[in-house]
Simulated assay, not measured.
Amino acid sequence: MNKKPIILVTNDDGIVAPGIRALIHFMNLLGEVYVVAPSKPQSGVGHGITMNTVLYCDSVKIDNGNQKEWKCSGTPVDCVKLAISDILPRKPDICVSGINHGSNSSINIMYSGTVSAVLEASIEGIPSVGFSLLDFDWNADFEPSKKYVCYIVKKILYNSITEKKTIISLNVNIPKLKKEQIKGIRICRQAKSKWKESFDKRYNPKGRTYYWLVGDFVNFDKKIDTDEWALKNGYVSVVPIQFDLTNYTILNILKSWNLLLFFLFSLF
């Protein structure tokens, strides 16, 4: 490529989160960086968009990097939409989201604003990848992630998959380990899991009821080709993802109903 690739950076922890600041630093080594990220934490918003209130998006300067930055009052998906339609000089070559503070493996992908930004970019035909570090600490060490983040982004930017017009979107999770303890990368599928949840019911000083969502993560999938196995065994997990939620197995079963339904309806 004769010109530097344009890299769109976003997240769901907010534009000042250490994770996105680390990701911006890494991406400045690879291309021309534009940051459009939420002005405040948006964890757990999934693929939510802002419809009933106005959106604000203001240019900011947070550190001394070469990137151009905007903070947005909306969700991660709002950030991607605004960046593509109104802010960037052209469609970005890649959208990177994160680095999230905490896991987005297995079922967590359904709730993640980090991953939803990735999927929104893929809807627009943009290669994309979301990064998460399995450390919720605000002061987490993101340096061990650098090698893997840069490697994966470069593979997406220059790999033949992208050249064949196949839009690649990845969900990447990085174990909380020292650099020398990470064993490498595993290409995985999403583990079958769920959260066993309940609500902690409480009362405020005025007697009004309020609730805290609590729960335990339950992994039903013990096979070695999953993201959960990879992370527990010291690997970076890479799961290819898509926004098409069609269940193709059930689709083929339902298609077999057609003739039967025609026969049954003809009886009435």
Results as ranks from 00 to 15, higher is better:
7 I>K: 04
7 I>D: 02
13 D>W: 07
14 G>H: 08
22 A>E: 03
29 L>N: 15
32 E>R: 11
34 Y>R: 10
34 Y>G: 12
40 K>C: 01
44 G>E: 09
49 I>T: 15
54 V>A: 11
55 L>D: 04
56 Y>I: 00
57 C>V: 07
59 S>E: 13
60 V>D: 12
68 K>M: 05
69 E>F: 05
75 T>Y: 04
78 D>R: 01
83 A>F: 08
87 I>Y: 09
88 L>Y: 10
89 P>W: 11
92 P>M: 06
96 V>D: 06
101 H>K: 15
105 S>G: 11
111 Y>R: 11
117 A>K: 09
119 L>C: 10
121 A>V: 13
122 S>W: 11
129 V>A: 15
133 L>T: 06
136 F>K: 14
142 F>A: 00
151 Y>S: 00
156 I>H: 00
158 Y>E: 09
159 N>R: 07
160 S>R: 13
161 I>F: 10
164 K>L: 13
164 K>E: 14
166 T>K: 14
170 L>T: 01
178 K>W: 04
181 Q>R: 05
182 I>G: 02
187 I>A: 09
193 S>F: 08
195 W>D: 00
196 K>A: 15
196 K>T: 00
196 K>H: 07
199 F>V: 12
199 F>A: 10
209 T>D: 12
209 T>N: 07
211 Y>K: 12
215 G>P: 05
225 D>G: 08
231 L>K: 01
234 G>Q: 07
247 N>F: 14
248 Y>G: 01
254 L>G: 00
255 K>T: 00
256 S>I: 01
257 W>H: 10
266 S>C: 11
